[in-house]
Design a binder for these strands. Structure first.
Lengths: 240, 240
DNA sequence: AAAATAGAAAATATCCAATTTTAAAATGGA
DNA sequence: TCCATTTTAAAATTGGATATTTTCTATTTT
């Protein structure tokens, strides 16, 4: 589904630019520049930025305008643990009430992911953002039967946060090959075997490894401007 | 800390009105009416409403404006379970890294809560919103040493959501007496004894009971307008 | 030279008026 | 009663104007 309103479209674009690291942690988001870059009015921009504040991707201190939320190892650790908690819990619930539809979604998502992983693995030059999209869909499918909107909601937020760190890591280091492919395969097997314990163990390890991609570099250096305060504010909902 | 900007102030006021049930589930939030009621411009209003969308208190479907998010038993169940998950997890973590400061916050918060509970218990007419504030502070203190900003963040969202249901229940039924007082006492004891298992068990029960106040009435009747679709969208950060 | 201060320039937060789009309601026949 | 059309009420956006607040820079003071 494509955005029905301008605000939503711009929201998606800025969000994407932050997630991809085009807008770097700490960057000041001057309304005037944004106006030109995204071709929308100040008011529309402010509205979209407010939403991003809620997602924990943008900060809005007092009267000092908007900035891209800074990164830190502590924040990454927090996000990683939180994502593990939520994703494992949701995966467990999903397995409990797993039905054929769920299985079908999981297998389908895995297939897509697997195919593109194969392509990229043989030729790293062909890395595509599609990989990230399919990866998200696979993880999404796994927990799609958990039955809790809020859980999916929060998980989505954490997923995006961790994605940002991962993408930042790829800016300085090569995309890791092979390993995550095998992990995904194991995760799929555990899911289809309805082995909740094994599944959560695998997911935990998988998520940890993903985070390490970032930790390995010390990416917590100069970012945009000064204070690299704590993370977000208030935030909410998942994508329809 | 008082709001530094108009938007923040209005945000707080609308938020409060929704939590208190002054703005009822399903209510249409016409910008024009809001403009008068809260004395702010359309743009400012849109900005604050966007934030509330993130909190899962306001919905913003397509091009049909804003509405107060409807309530439903399914949603309440979801919220309740989610709050239990987060609050118990956070309480456990808190106990793990509990120090004297934490203990002091817990005891202090309990004291305030206890005092006002006593007053209200002897004279129900004197029910005060302060009780809710102190109750929040007590629960907040319990998990304040968990060390995870995101966890506190998400918990805050769930707490507010459950508070809304509770307040809606009080509109039709009397404030329950005595029981929760005893529960709080037990919770305090378990916390000070560093008994994580007992504490989480008590918290779970306590939260369940709180939710039942609402379930007991069938409060899921006509609310504002038509479709009472699913809950929220995206959401994010905690209060500073 | 470090610290404090005054003033200028830049950027925010807000508001208002006007336009374009959309959705919901009303109307008028088949 | 059920469509199709017109009307009407709102919402989404824009552009511009205005106070206020920050931030920067040059000037003084200690």
């Amino acid at each position: 589904m494509r955005p029905t309103t301008l605000t939503e479209a711009v929201y998606g674009r800025i969000r994407n630019d932050i997630l991809l690291g085009l807008l770097k942690p700490g960057d000041k988001l001057k309304l005037e520049s944004l106006r030109q870059r995204y071709d929308a009015s100040i008011n529309t921009l402010r509205e979209t930025l407010s939403r991003l504040v809620a997602d924990g991707l943008v900060a809005n201190e007092g009267q000092r305008g908007f900035t891209v939320v800074p990164t830190s190892l502590a924040d990454l650790r927090d996000i990683t643990e939180m994502r593990q908690l939520l994703e494992c819990h949701a995966a467990r619930l999903s397995i409990q009430s797993a039905d054929l539809d769920w299985e079908s979604r999981v297998v389908g998502a895995y297939h897509k992911l697997s195919k593109i992983e194969q392509v990229i693995d043989t030729d790293p030059k062909r890395y595509s953002p599609l990989l990230e999209a399919y990866n998200r869909q696979f993880h999404g499918a796994l927990i799609s039967a958990c039955g809790s909107r809020w859980l999916l909601n929060f998980h989505g937020v954490m997923y995006d946060q961790s994605l940002r760190y991962r993408m930042l890591a790829f800016q300085v280091r090569d995309f890791p090959r092979d390993q995550s492919r095998r992990e995904h395969r194991e995760i799929l097997d555990a899911a289809l075997a309805r082995d909740a314990d094994r599944l959560t163990a695998l997911l935990t390890a998988h998520i940890t490894k993903g985070a390490e991609l970032y930790v390995e570099q010390d990416l917590t250096r100069a970012q945009g401007t000064k204070r690299r305060g704590p993370p977000p504010r208030r935030h909410a909902g998942p994508r329809k």
